[in-house]
């Protein structure tokens, strides 16, 4: 099984070296991994740090946002014939050792197309900020109303994409705040989405791009985007199983 680990990174020089060292230590039987860091127009030494650690580096000439960066990795995975792509945030929030849990979840029936690592099913897990939990609660409600599906961690960026999800998101992937919106796309495209409890930890370096007033903007934008995306994707013929096969 060939797996491409996609790490979107914007000014993550502080956390990246440690994260890549952890990935280097990772040994999973029967799995060949390759790592690509998507340098999303960083102004620090993100690309140099990634190269020095032996990772492949895609340097985006301008900042596309997390969605544009992740989609770049998805495109690489599809073109190079990887079986799966795993998204791990460049800030070190996602312990690479938890990757084994996501891979193990691919063996469940029905085979999931998209597996989302969730941090909210284990009480002992890393507890995020109040604002973040409030936002997550609201997005859960929105997604539940719009897609009639229950997601516990709609903002998680720790994900595994199977072949059908890679094909779908190669075509369309939301750019600004893509995690909740991509769940709506997946649901409307009838992809099988599964959640897998994983451990997460606080970011290991850098700063979050969502703070202050941008939190309010984030919530408003994502709410509208989820609704529009679901209606748009569900209304398309290519959003059916037949088109994705």
């Amino acid at each position: 099984m060939r797996v491409l680990i996609v790490i979107p990174a914007y000014n993550e020089e502080a956390a990246l070296a440690g994260l890549l060292a952890e990935i280097r230590e990772l040994v999973i039987d029967g799995v060949t991994t390759d790592v690509v860091v998507i340098d999303d127009g960083s102004t620090d030494r993100t690309a140099q740090v990634a190269r020095a650690a032996g990772a492949r580096v895609l340097r985006l000439s301008r900042n596309l946002g997390i969605g544009g960066a992740v989609q770049s990795g998805i495109r690489v995975a599809r073109r190079e014939g990887f079986d799966y792509a795993v998204q791990i945030d460049g800030d070190g929030q996602h312990p690479p050792s938890e990757l084994t849990k996501l891979l193990a979840a691919t063996r469940t029936e029905p085979a999931p197309d998209l597996i989302v690592g969730t941090r909210y099913t284990d009480a002992a897990n890393f507890r995020s900020t109040f604002l973040r939990r409030l936002g997550t609660w609201w997005l859960r409600v929105v997604l539940r109303v719009v897609t009639r599906t229950r997601y516990t961690d709609p903002t998680s960026g720790f994900r595994l994409y199977g072949p059908r999800a890679l094909r779908r998101f190669d075509e369309t992937y939301p750019y600004d705040f893509p995690e909740p919106e991509s769940l709506a796309i997946a649901r409307a495209s009838r992809l099988v989405v599964a959640e897998q409890p994983v451990a997460m930890r606080p970011r290991q370096g850098g700063t979050s791009s969502i703070f202050g007033f941008s939190t309010v903007y984030y919530m408003m934008k994502v709410t509208v985007a989820v609704l529009l995306t679901y209606v748009r994707t569900a209304g398309r013929k290519e959003g059916t199983d037949d088109a994705i096969e």
């Binding site: 690509v36 998507i38 580096v57 895609l58 340097r59 985006l60 301008r62 544009g68 770049s72 495109r75």
Partner: peptide, 16 residues
């Protein structure tokens, strides 16, 4: 956006 992504993918391939 698409052009930026394609450029990065091609550049990485050339570098390799």
């Amino acid at each position: 956006v698409t052009l930026t992504q394609e450029l990065a993918i091609l550049q990485e391939r050339i570098d390799r």
